[in-house]
Amino acid sequence: MTDTAMKDAWYPVGLCSDLSADGRKTRLMGEPITVKTGPVGAPEVLNADNEPLPVIIRFGHVWTSLGAPQTDLFTIPEADQPSRKLVDVGVVRVKCSPLRAVENFLDIAHFPFVHTDILGAEPHTEVEDYKVEIRDEEDEVWATKVKFFQPQAAKSAEGGITTEYMYRVPAPTCSVLYKTCPPRPGEWDVICLFVQPLTEDLCDVWPWMALYDEDNTMTELIHFQQMIFLQDRSILENQIPTRLPLDPGMEMPTRADMTSVAYRRWLKRHNYTYGAQLVAK
């Protein structure tokens, strides 16, 4: 079975704030699972045979795995800093490969065309060179010194600014974005994309944020992020092929796509191929 590597990873399967004793039926990598509040009040995830799966509660979500995870779920130390607003954005279903969803999140060049007048705008389309590495010690993909001009980078941003970003891929279907925080220079807002692979072509996406923001209500912050992700959704459902091609001949990257190139290389290296297309069709 080629997907063993990804079976051992952790995946988000629900919001802690939205659990019930009746449970919610969902899927993980094709397997039916139930996410519920257990008898003693703790979250529980059961497989099709009603057997418990491993559970971690972190970042407002319930995480589980179909396999035997060798490592703890990653951490985001910045998210623990006091006075941040922790924002459960909710869930959006997308008919695309979970890997395509993550790759899109790592991309900035689409901002002027897909998030027009919010995260980008013509003629400010140029992507300057930035730094990308696969950090061996943490076994994570990192992109740093990413800069882009944004008309309205965040709900708390007034007018256009050049925003700096760092991107991090700590798990095959998760990405963490650190982004200049307009009200607090020197600090980073944390915006995450946690993807639950339902099948290789279908996923539930759970965005989550840890922000410094005193001006906006929680609802306004949720709406901003839902708006951004829903603008991406119509792209993600119209890419051909649906699965992420790991064959380098299938899709043509440029320097702006260095993060995606590293992400694809890292997936291949670890045999993280659930949702990938290996051979050109």
């Binding site: 119209n238 890419q239 051909i240 091609p245 899709e251 990257p253």
Partner: peptide, 10 residues
């Protein structure tokens, strides 16, 4: 063909 050679978008 209804496919951008960059990222496969229609």
């Amino acid at each position: 063909g209804d496919r951008c050679p960059h990222r496969g978008m229609r």
